[in-house]
């Protein structure tokens, strides 16, 4: 318990759509230890994205508790330093070039100096985009964009990375490359990874594999 990065217990989430209640999560328990890599699979609509948003503190559960490194503070300020998120559809800011998109993660929580600039450049080098730093998102391919998003998620040296189907918009080959990169970087930096994916091969590369079914981990 002492080196638990993230702990969720009894998480319940219900959506009201019209007068229908959709019970998406019915008591999810999850404990993630530092340095672990976990994959979450599940059918479409099983609530994987919903769970990830809850774990990221972007939404509040109807019941259950969430702690980050033992602390219940999951506010915006702490989130920026504690975790990085990678989404299925990249979400890069179209007006900013690759370097500035990576720096944006830092800009929101603090000052940008030459040290931060160097770190962002270093990260972009690590994801293989050394030559593309001043390119705008529209000038990059899907795989390249997702690699920028990975670099952005790592920018603040977070303890945890949450990735929601990061390969969903990529072809097989590119997707595998991105997953390898993500796993490699997390292993290198000791960052914990929670990866939501449909792909069994990608899931198999993680240390622990979970399946979400009927609102619980099976």
């Amino acid at each position: 318990m002492s080196n638990s990065i993230l702990n969720a217990s009894g998480i319940v989430k219900t959506f009201l759509s019209g007068d229908r209640r959709i019970e998406v999560l019915r008591g999810v328990n999850l404990d993630v230890a530092a340095g672990e890599s976990i994959s979450i699979r599940g059918e479409s609509g099983s609530g994987k994205s919903t769970l990830l948003h809850l774990l990221a503190g972007l939404d509040a559960p109807d019941a259950g508790t969430l702690t980050w490194e033992g602390s219940p503070d999951t506010g915006a300020k702490r989130r920026a330093a504690f975790l990085g998120i990678v989404f299925q559809s990249f979400y890069l800011i179209p007006e900013l070039d690759a370097l500035q998109n990576v720096l944006m993660a830092r800009r929101i929580v603090g000052h940008i100096g030459s040290a931060e600039r160097d770190r962002a450049k270093e990260l972009l080098k690590r994801v293989g985009l050394a030559e593309r730093m001043d390119h705008l998102p529209t000038q990059l391919s899907g795989g390249e964009r997702q690699r920028v998003a990975v670099a952005r998620a790592l920018m603040n040296a977070p303890r945890l990375i949450l990735a929601d189907e990061p390969t969903g918009n990529l072809d097989e080959h590119t997707g595998s490359a991105v997953i390898e990169l993500l796993l490699g970087l997390c292993r290198e930096t000791g960052t914990t990874l929670v990866l939501v994916t449909h792909n069994a091969d990608h899931a198999a590369k993680c240390g622990r594999q979970l399946v979400l079914r009927e609102g619980r981990f099976a």
Binding site: L58, S89, I93, M104
Partner: peptide, 16 residues
């Protein structure tokens, strides 16, 4: 809209 969501996910406050 989606970029605004992303900024929120990156830790931006509503006021900002």
């Amino acid at each position: 809209t989606r970029e605004i969501g992303l900024l929120g996910a990156l830790g931006a406050s509503r006021r900002q």
